[in-house]
């Protein structure tokens, strides 16, 4: 008799596809949140796989904080166009017009208004009852405990002490009006799995992940790329070209680069395997306060 084995990636893939289809079947108005990062890129591909040869039956939504790297926006628009996605882009324009930004208001206020509030407003505006996110449990300690179907009350809040039991592959998708579920189809993937999958499946990713000479300044020990002319004037003379890449992508003033020569996925993985920093440490927002990610999750941020 033939041996019917799946590799770990094939097993993760089938689990994720099952989750994505389950949401499409059971919710009235789901949305896939798209951060344009590598995990999102994998999640989006899994959604395309789940419904092939058909079209994905839900839209993709990007919460644009207005401070994303320009290459991210370009990549987003090209990808959505090429693969026929219905793309929704939402921003907190009120705060943006009031001049909110990380340099003037600090990372906490900026993130609260331009990311968390913008996301919550967008979810309310479209009345989505389920939202996919690309978070992985290995990313950060508070995520290790979160369910794949993560219940949010009508204020979009997560209660880590009151999570629905989740067994086998049977997901409870019942919610009352106004409540919702955040769904994490990549829960069981690790960072290495993501890179491996991108490599094997040739999934397009934003070029910022690869090392290149980029104009950078050092701010509080972080290497920040001067992506547009909103960099405070006093920092402009300190810009130097450095060979860097990004391990995570977000708002450019809040995302530290790492010095690197890695220009292929293999080299990125090699760097990752031998590096001394895990990926979230290049995100400035995580250091704002003790247990900050858990706090943000309770408030409705992913």
């Amino acid at each position: 008799m033939a041996e019917y084995n799946l590799s770990h990636l094939q097993e993760l893939e089938t689990e994720s596809i099952h989750i994505i289809r389950e949401v499409a079947a059971e919710f009235e108005n789901p949305v896939m949140l798209y951060s344009i990062g590598k995990d999102s890129s994998v999640m989006v591909r899994l959604a395309e796989k789940a419904f092939a040869p058909g079209k994905v039956p839900f839209p993709l939504m990007h919460i644009d904080s207005k401070w994303k790297f320009r290459e991210m926006i370009e990549f987003r628009d090209n990808y959505a166009k090429q693969y026929g996605w219905n793309l929704i882009v939402e921003s907190n324009m009120e705060a943006f017009n009031a001049g909110v930004g990380p340099f003037t208001h600090g990372s906490k206020v900026h993130t609260d208004l331009m990311k968390t509030k913008a996301l919550l407003d967008a979810l309310n505006k479209y009345k989505f009852d389920a939202a996919f996110g690309g978070a992985r449990r290995d990313e950060e300690k508070s995520r290790a405990k979160e369910r794949i179907f993560s219940f949010r009350d009508k204020f979009n809040q997560w209660d880590p002490k009151n999570q629905r039991p989740e067994l086998w592959d049977i997901y409870n998708s019942r919610v009352h009006k106004g409540e919702s579920i955040r769904v994490f189809p990549l829960s069981n993937w690790t960072e290495l799995d993501i890179w491996q999958y991108i490599r094997l499946e040739n999934i397009p990713i934003v070029p910022l992940y690869y090392a290149k000479e980029r104009p950078c300044v050092e701010i509080d020990g972080n290497i920040i790329m001067a992506d547009d002319d909103r960099l405070p004037k006093e920092l402009v003379p300190k810009i130097h070209n450095r060979m860097v890449r990004f391990r995570t992508l977000g708002c450019w003033p809040l995302t530290g680069a790492v010095e690197s020569n890695a220009t292929t996925i293999e080299e990125i993985v090699e760097e990752m395997m031998t590096t001394t920093k895990s990926e979230r440490t290049t995100r400035v927002i995580d250091f704002d306060q003790e247990a900050s990610m858990e706090q943000k999750k309770r408030e409705g941020y992913f």
């Binding site: 300690k141 508070s142 290790a144 880590p160 002490k161 829960s187 069981n188 690790t190």
Partner: peptide
């Protein structure tokens, strides 16, 4: 292993937590 603030204060694991290694 103890991810959440609340349980770190209690000194015990309070829920299922998933860990990954290879």
């Amino acid at each position: 292993l103890d991810g959440l603030k609340a349980e770190r204060e209690e000194g015990i694991t309070i829920d299922v937590a998933y860990r990954y290694f290879s």
